[in-house]
Amino acid sequence: MDWYFWIFAVMALGGGLFTITYKDILPCAMGLLTVFIAMAALYLHLNAPLVAVFQVTIYAGAILVLVLFVVMLLMSPGEKIKKSQVNCSNRFMGAVLTVGLMIFLGIGTKGLSDMIGAKELPEKFGNPGQLGIVLVQKFILHFEVVSVLLLAALVGAIYLAKKRI
């Protein structure tokens, strides 16, 4: 099933490239949607069905809709993004920095896969029941902390978006 990886890898990279290069912002959001869907498909391939479902519901569902909502709130209709005020040298610097970072990451992750080696997957690896058991046995404190964090984010977002701050 190697073609599966290649199809969705190309889809993710193409969507990402589209997102950061296209000049109108709504198509950029659609490119981001492509990336999210491709990621969900790759998660399915990696025995993570629950993560794939959450990828679609939370990222492609909630987060992207929120971003689109704000785009439509802030951009007046038909408005194009203005030609950016950065000059070419700024862009060049960005590209150089990015290439440097990617070389750094490539060196850092080289040989990691040999270190791990091939492990035999246990029976029913990654099905939601097992994930839930790990979640409440090993990570119960983190789970509670995340719930408090979400509550704080909720209150903060409502406060910030009010009429006057």
Partner: peptide
């Protein structure tokens, strides 16, 4: 790594905060 690099490039090059 490639996707992370694309994201970094977007942050460094684009000027629209939503992007």
């Amino acid at each position: 790594v490639l996707l992370f690099g694309l994201g970094t490039l977007g942050v460094l090059v684009r000027r629209n905060t939503l992007l």
